[in-house]
């Protein structure tokens, strides 16, 4: 009964994971003989300006996406946290962008952010701004625009997770605190925050893993432009592997990406554990 799943899993998941590490040490190009080149790909990687800037962009993208999703998501969820039909309806509506494909979301925002035909700039001009920003065509604003779209798409998912965590906090805790004369801030700081910390931690991990893998927005909306301002690691992997067919080199990039994600996850886990021990919440 396990066989069908494990057949697929080992051939199309485990084997590729292992062989990818091997590829990253070769000069494998599609349709050519491979040679073992030891660490050459990795050495070249850290001299490749396109890759380095993509690594930086990805880190910025991940940092701000995660920051906004984890904090803003919690803030809104705490305010909305009531067991009413209204909150249930809001939760359902908020999940719509999450269920919509990134391609569709990218198309909608491509139009809204278009410097001349987009609604946002038309509205800004109507409000009296003479030279509205060029958004995705502006070196400084392109990456923040992508971050904003990512937050817009995933906020509902984050709120869903938070609201379910918040509704698991026993109401008696708040009642007892009210009897003791605790204010709103005090209740948030001493009850909500410690009780929601594991949920926040889950949100932190999932949103950061997702953010490090970002590709579709870049491929569809900007192609890395303007001047590599929005190029991400996965966009580089895609370009090197499926435009230049340098599978070995791209494989090395994917190993680096994997290590970065692993490191971020481990750091978070340790940080969480440490805080739990100290009980600083």
């Amino acid at each position: 009964m396990l066989a069908p799943f494990f057949a697929f899993f080992s051939v199309f998941m485990l084997y590729p994971i292992v062989i990818n590490f091997y590829y990253s040490f070769t000069n494998y190009r599609l349709g050519q003989k491979k040679q073992f080149v030891w660490l050459n790909n990795y050495k070249n990687l850290f001299k490749d300006p396109d890759f380095l800037v993509s690594l930086k962009n990805t880190a910025v993208y991940a940092l701000f996406s995660v920051l906004f999703l984890t904090c803003l998501g919690l803030f809104i969820s705490v305010i909305l946290n009531r067991r009413t039909r209204m909150v249930h309806a809001v939760r359902t509506v908020m999940i719509i962008p999450y269920a919509t494909s990134m391609v569709a979301v990218s198309m909608i925002w491509l139009l809204l952010l278009d410097p001349t035909t987009g609604f946002i700039n038309k509205a800004l001009i109507a409000l009296g701004m003479n030279v509205p920003p060029k958004w995705l065509h502006d070196v400084k604003l392109a990456l923040p625009s992508l971050i904003f779209i990512n937050v817009w798409k995933n906020l509902g998912y984050v709120m869903l997770i938070y609201l379910s965590g918040l509704q698991n906090i026993p109401g008696e805790l708040y009642e007892a605190a009210t009897v003791d004369g605790a204010g709103l801030w005090h209740k948030f700081r001493r009850i909500t925050l410690p009780m929601i910390a594991p949920t926040a931690f889950f949100v932190l991990i999932t949103t950061s893993i997702e953010a490090f893998k970002t590709f579709e927005q870049v491929q569809i909306m900007t192609q890395g432009a303007p001047v590599n301002a929005t190029s991400t690691v996965v966009y580089q992997i895609y370009q090197r592997a499926f435009n230049d067919y340098r599978m070995g080199y791209a494989g090395a990039m994917s190993v680096v990406l994997f290590l970065v994600i692993l490191a971020v996850t481990l750091v978070n886990v340790f940080w969480m554990k440490k805080n739990e021990e100290k009980n600083i919440w």
């Binding site: 051939v11 199309f12 998941m13 084997y15 590729p16 994971i17 062989i19 990818n20 590829y23 599609l30 893993i209 490090f212 893998k213 590709f215 996965v234 992997i237 592997a241 499926f242 599978m247 791209a250 494989g251 994917s254 190993v255 990406l257 994997f258 994600i261 996850t265």
Partner: peptide, 15 residues
């Protein structure tokens, strides 16, 4: 579950 698909993408393609 934790492996990003980008890690398996290239070998999967050649496979």
């Amino acid at each position: 579950m934790m492996i990003p698909p980008q890690v398996t993408m290239i070998p999967l393609f050649s496979l």
